[in-house]
Every structure is written in structure tokens, then in C-alpha cells.
């Protein structure tokens, strides 16, 4: 279900790292909790983010969720397809439904994140 090479947060964001670039999205669990996504608010390219700073907002009809950056860095790309097809976030949350790409500032931020095994355990636990 959850890609092995990704890292995860307790707020249900995922991170995929390639070199010094990180792609960030929300997990399948998060999109299911929200229901049909109707709108995604994206940051501006070039914005610098700190860990846990708000990236943007994902909205369904009756719910709204802030998306927090798991890492620090500079936004180098945003998924503009989400403007016209927010449903992509429901259909392919771990792939085409990515939200932003970040140029990593501090690779050690990754140490704070969960592995897929940890995340699956986290989802099963009472805390979820």
C-alpha cells in the first residue's frame, strides 16, 4: 500500500527523496479521511519553508486540513495539475497527487520521519 522508499509524518504527509530534492504529498489514509478533495491551496515557487510550517491547505466539501512541511527547504515546484483536477489527490495520492517539490536544506530533517513500517504501525495504533 505505502511505498517502501517513502518517509512519513504523524500528520499524514509523505516524503520521497531523490538527491537533494524531496517530493511531498499527503498519504492515502489522509485523503480517505478528508473525502473527495475539491481544492488544494499551493504555495508560491521560491518560498522557503521551515519544518512544520504550513505548505498549503487541502479541502473537501465538509473538511479542511492544513498540510505541514516535514522538512526545511525551498519550494522548487508545485503540482499545478491540482488546480484543475484536485481529485487526482484522491485517485493517486502517492504519485500524480504530489503537492510540492522542495530543495532540501537540511538532510538530517529526514531522521525525524517514520519509515513505512513505523507509519503502518502508527496507523494501527490508537493514536490514529
Amino acid at each position: 500500500m505505502y511505498p517502501k522508499e517513502y518517509r512519513f509524518t504523524k500528520d499524514h504527509e509523505w516524503v520521497k527523496v531523490e538527491g537533494d530534492t524531496a517530493t511531498i504529498g499527503i498519504t492515502d489514509f489522509a485523503q480517505k479521511q478528508l473525502g473527495d478533495v475539491v481544492y488544494v491551496e499551493l504555495p508560491a515557487v521560491g518560498k522557503t519553508l521551515d519544518v512544520h510550517q504550513t505548505i498549503g491547505v487541502v479541502e473537501s466539501v465538509k473538511a479542511v486540513s492544513d498540510v505541514y512541511s516535514p522538512l526545511s527547504g525551498e519550494v522548487i515546484a508545485i503540482n499545478e495539475d491540482l488546480n484543475n483536477s484536485p481529485e487526482t489527490l484522491n485517485h493517486d495520492p502517492h504519485g500524480k497527487g504530489w503537492i510540492i517539490r522542495l530543495r532540501l536544506k537540511n538532510k538530517s530533517d529526514l531522521d525525524q520521519l517514520m519509515t513505512v513500517g513505523d507509519y503502518e504501525k502508527f496507523l494501527e495504533g490508537p493514536a490514529s
Partner: peptide, 9 residues
């Protein structure tokens, strides 16, 4: 567009 409103946000 109720996510702008107080009962959700």
C-alpha cells in the same frame, strides 16, 4: 465553498 466558513474552519 463552506470550508471558508466558521462551522468548518
Amino acid at each position: 465553498l463552506s470550508t471558508r466558513e466558521q462551522h468548518i474552519r
